[in-house]
Simulated scan of single mutants.
Amino acid sequence: MQPPAFVQAEESLAVAARKLQHDNIGCLPVCQGERVIGMLTDRDIAMRGVADGRNASQMSVMEAMSRDPLTCFADDSVEQAAILMTQGHVQRLAVLDRKTQRLIGVISVSDVGGSQTEPRHYEVTFFKKMSDHYGHSQHAEVMRISIVHGSKDEAIAVAMRQFEQVKQVNSWNQLADGYDVTTIHHDEQGVVVDEHELTSEREARIKQRAYELWEQAGAPAGQDKEYWHKAAAELDDQDRAEE
Rank of each mutant, 00 (worst) to 15 (best):
Q8S: 11
Q8Y: 03
Q8V: 02
E10N: 07
L13K: 04
L13F: 02
A14I: 00
A16I: 05
L20C: 08
Q21D: 05
H22R: 12
N24G: 01
I25E: 06
G26P: 09
C31P: 08
Q32V: 01
V36M: 00
V36G: 00
I37A: 05
G38Y: 05
I45M: 06
I45W: 09
A46S: 13
A46M: 07
R48D: 10
G49C: 10
R54K: 12
V61H: 11
A64K: 03
R67V: 02
R67S: 08
D68R: 14
P69F: 11
T71Q: 07
C72V: 15
C72G: 12
D76L: 15
S77F: 00
S77M: 00
S77C: 02
V78H: 01
A81P: 00
I83P: 11
I83E: 10
T86R: 13
Q87A: 10
V90W: 11
A94K: 12
V95M: 11
L96T: 00
L96Y: 12
D97Q: 13
R98C: 04
R98M: 07
L103K: 04
I104T: 13
V106M: 09
V106H: 13
S108Y: 06
V109D: 01
D111K: 08
G113P: 13
G114N: 09
E118S: 14
R120S: 02
Y122E: 08
V124S: 01
T125P: 06
T125A: 13
F126W: 09
K128Y: 08
K129H: 04
M130T: 15
S131D: 03
Y134V: 05
S137C: 05
Q138P: 01
Q138F: 03
A140M: 11
A140K: 14
E141M: 03
R144D: 10
R144N: 13
R144K: 14
